[in-house]
């Protein structure tokens, strides 16, 4: 279980010393073990920052995060992260990239090789062991990124817009594959995305954020039957799905409009 307690964060602005950029404002949230939770919100609302704080990559200015009752003060081996830009090491082959996490965590050579080969097959990269990242398509690269995270057998999987850099068709395919993988190995997933449809299709619960400074607008429990990957087309066109989308989009549109007005309105002294 992840508990976020009264969390606020701000970045110090480079251009003006005394004005700070508040990105998260008093966030409290509980994420149940084994659930798939998505963060949705306008750009710059701090959802990616929140994910990094939960993992321990950024220290929050106010408040704290508890995972299984313990305060997070840095990354830990039972949590793994998947990044939007894949972040593969270009000098390593696919196999060595997948091993990277386990290698850093001190797993011995043969055990990590075995784990990497195992996950590699599960994500559909069999035969690509010796390829280098620059020889792969975006979808393949993210499979490597996902395999690198899964190979450490994390209890918690944090995904920062993992499908955001892929083209829309590959993206939909990867969504179903992700669900299939997670059905076989249940994990607690925190998933940041811009795509409302993606969030509904994947999640048990969606947290909708306001425009900056990020506050939680609402939580929505997604009660669509699982497993969803078997008949993804039917689910995505179901009445329930469309209702969820309308509801979330309505909330977001409001946020986006106020953001747009802020940008276009002349500044009053």
């Amino acid at each position: 279980m992840i508990e976020i307690l009264g969390l606020s964060h701000q970045f110090t602005r480079q251009d003006s010393a005394d004005e700070n950029l508040v990105v998260l404002d008093n966030i409290s949230l509980t994420i149940e073990k084994g659930s798939f939770v998505s963060f949705v919100g306008p750009s710059g609302c701090g959802k990616t920052t929140l994910l990094r704080i939960i993992h321990g990559l950024i220290k929050p200015k106010v408040g704290k995060v508890l995972i299984e009752g313990e305060t997070v003060c840095g990354p830990s081996a039972n949590r793994a992260m998947v990044f939007q830009e894949f972040n593969l090491l270009p000098w390593r082959t696919v196999l060595k990239n997948i091993e990277f996490g386990l290698e850093l965590q001190g797993t011995d050579r043969s055990a990590r090789r075995q784990a990497a080969l195992d996950v590699l097959k599960r994500v559909g990269l069999g035969g690509f062991e010796r390829y280098y990242p620059h020889q792969l398509s975006g979808g393949m690269k993210q499979r490597v990124g996902l395999a690198r995270a899964l190979s450490t057998s994390p209890t918690y999987l944090f995904m920062d817009e993992p499908l955001g850099a892929l083209d829309p068709q590959i993206r939909e395919l990867m969504q179903t594959e992700l669900l299939k993988l997670l059905d076989a190995h249940r994990k607690t997933v925190v998933f940041v995305t811009h795509s409302v449809d993606e969030a509904i299709f994947l999640s048990d619960r969606i947290v909708v954020f306001s425009a900056r400074p990020g506050r939680i607008l609402t939580h929505i429990d997604i009660e669509l039957p699982r497993p969803r990957w078997k008949d993804d087309e039917k689910i995505k066109s179901s009445e329930k799905f469309v209702t969820y989308r309308q509801h979330i989009w309505h909330l977001l549109k409001h946020e986006l409009q106020s953001e747009l007005q802020l940008q276009t309105m002349p500044k009053l002294a």
Binding site: A80, W91, F100, G101, Q105, R148
Partner: peptide, 29 residues
Amino acid sequence: VDRQLVETAKSFTASEYQILSKVVIPSAV
């Protein structure tokens, strides 16, 4: 060195020494 690669290594609990030997030095090659 690509900051994102350093962050990735950190996310997998890399120590300062591991970041240097496994990310910074190879990327300078």
